[in-house]
Design a binder for these strands. Structure first.
Lengths: 342, 342
DNA sequence: GAAAAAAATGTAATCGTTTACATAGAAAGA
DNA sequence: TCTTTCTATGTAAACGATTACATTTTTTTC
């Protein structure tokens, strides 16, 4: 026989399709013996629930969507994994879209998701150009969660941290070590709000300390080890290289570390390097990378749990979580040469 | 007005729903002016295709599924990203399931996928216990692709490399350097076929060279930096530690490197360490990690492209690609102490 | 023990596309 | 000109679950 449907099951169990449907979704509504009878027939017939038909009928898919720039960032993957673990345990599969920092691609993927009537979406940021569209979506169409940053508008759900403050503090940390010539390298600062905020935090800290940001001290790289390496080489070839460089991602920082080793520059004796993310490798490179710890997995877990609560009508939101970040002072930052404050 | 459907579009354009449907899926079947008329109405009405209804009607979802143990492995993520990029560009979204090396979880996720009638599935290996079920699925239910290993049965699609041979060669490389006391550390060798094969390759190389595998020289760890570190400590505390250790993943190897540094053991002077995967970090640690390069992205691209071809009925398969791997000799392996063969 | 309330179950319309099949009109072949 | 063959389009029956509403059965209340 062809695959059995609830109609077949209903007939065999001597009940209506409504009852079979309820056995699937609201078993508590059924009398225990009816439930058992239906379940027995299902088992015996190897019934497989047709999620397409169910979603279609309910006019809402039970799939969730996650938008993130790239799974290559180990830290963002950490968010994705934790998120998936939580929503998965509640039976929600998740479609992951890597937007690859491509504005157009992101738009296309969002259209695809709208066509599928996902029940909820998560955004680990988005391209600045698509923000208005995405906020409209979050307002009118489905529950959405924004991760990895805070939002000023309190009508949206977010689980993030203060990117501005995190970078302000790390910059301050470098200043307190005695550095005056500090450079900053972001990735896609013009297209990703959280990176822009990081740069702003750095700027503000410099300003507040009365320090100059020299020509060429703010750079924008592509994300990835190789690009960190390339940036570092550029700095090293400057007539007046900075005494400390703050990279807005650990990947960049570790690439820079690699460039230093190749160039025979000692870290932190000759130059200080700081990162951002606290990826697992950060404490395993040598010297251990001084960086800012981002609570990636926790953001994923919280967003996932809140989404479940929203979908189950347990809570309404909006949910807004601002998580703390921590400066992980390890081995790559020290006072600048010829400076013995202590 | 509520969201327009093809019925609305059909009315407004003065055509039948069949024509609208064709405008969406087979535009070449329509007369150019009819097509334009329909498309204009769609644009003007902000029509959004209802993929749930479409999939339901077609009795086949246009979503693909990817099963992998964990996105924490940077190299496996590389496969996922490449795969996603290819199938995404053809309009196929992808549901990613991280099975977390959990047999039961993997089974549950597979059931969920069957309920959704995915049009195809990719497996970066699977738990040994679930192999029979999954092969049945691949045989009867939908196109499936197996990645990261070769298969003996030529009726399935795979894009992989020879795990046995790769490890045989790396072990041979260590033997050729003069090592006799070589240890091997896998992760989940009893549950993941490709890891088991790696171990077998190591065993065979040792046997062929007439070397003994001492007590405690084959270990099984959990995947992750920390566990590599822990394993290394265990080896270092042995009365007769090996002179070389081959870790079946770079994460483990880099964790081990870290343990050596902490213990004041020099690599490769005091002990040689080899990895497997060639993750991006491998060449950025110090000393550069000697490892086996796995063509992760390429496997993803090939599998994705073949799947598209199958779904479009361009080719039929089965597809079987055995890709070459390469030993990346870097800085962590050298002849053992007191041995000057050259 | 009758009425009211609650629990369990049934009826049947509904969701929006797809597609096999039918048909009309145009082009090609005789 | 009359078939025959294409091409473009229309008709309408699926697909399989959900759920508002109706009905029956059971329990509670007085």
């Amino acid at each position: 026989m062809a695959k059995p449907t609830i109609v077949d099951i209903a007939k065999l169990a001597g009940v209506s399709t409504a009852t079979v449907s309820r056995a699937l979704r609201e078993p508590h509504m059924l009398a225990p013996d009816t439930l058992k009878r239906v379940q027995d027939v299902m088992a015996q017939q190897h019934y497989i629930y047709n999620a397409m038909a169910g979603d279609f009928s309910r006019r809402k898919s039970s799939v969730l969507g996650l938008f993130m720039p790239t799974a290559e960032s180990a830290k963002i993957s950490g968010t994705a994994i934790a998120l998936q673990e939580v929503v998965g345990s509640h039976g929600f599969p998740i479609i992951i879209s890597n937007t690859l920092f491509d504005e157009q691609l992101e738009r296309e993927q969002i259209i695809k998701c709208r066509e599928r009537s996902l029940s909820g979406m998560f955004f680990v940021g988005c391209m600045l150009e698509n923000e208005p569209m995405i906020f409209n979506l979050a307002k009118d169409e489905l529950p959405a969660f924004f991760l990895w940053d805070t939002l000023d508008d309190t009508s949206y759900n977010y689980v993030g941290f203060d990117n501005f403050d995190a970078c302000y503090r790390m910059t301050r940390y470098l200043i307190d070590l005695g550095h005056k010539d500090i450079a900053f390298v972001g990735a896609m600062a013009q297209h990703v709000r959280r990176v822009y905020k990081r740069q702003s935090g750095y700027r503000q800290a410099m300003r507040d300390a009365g320090l100059n940001i020299h020509q060429g001290y703010i750079q924008d790289a592509l994300p990835g080890l190789e690009f960190g390496k390339a940036e570092m080489k550029t700095f090293l070839s400057m007539p007046n290289p900075p005494t400390a460089i703050f990279f807005a991602s650990d990947m960049l920082a570790i690439g820079a570390l690699s460039a230093c080793r190749e160039a025979g520059i000692r870290v932190p004796e000759d130059i200080s390097i700081a990162g951002f993310d606290n990826i697992e490798f950060a404490e395993h490179v040598y010297p251990g990378l001084t960086t800012v710890n981002v609570p990636a997995a926790e953001m994923g877990r919280i967003a996932g749990q809140c989404m479940i609560d929203i979908l189950r009508h347990k809570k309404r939101g909006p949910f807004q979580y601002k998580l703390p970040v921590e400066i992980m002072a390890r081995g790559t930052c020290a006072p600048p040469k010829g400076n013995c404050r202590v």
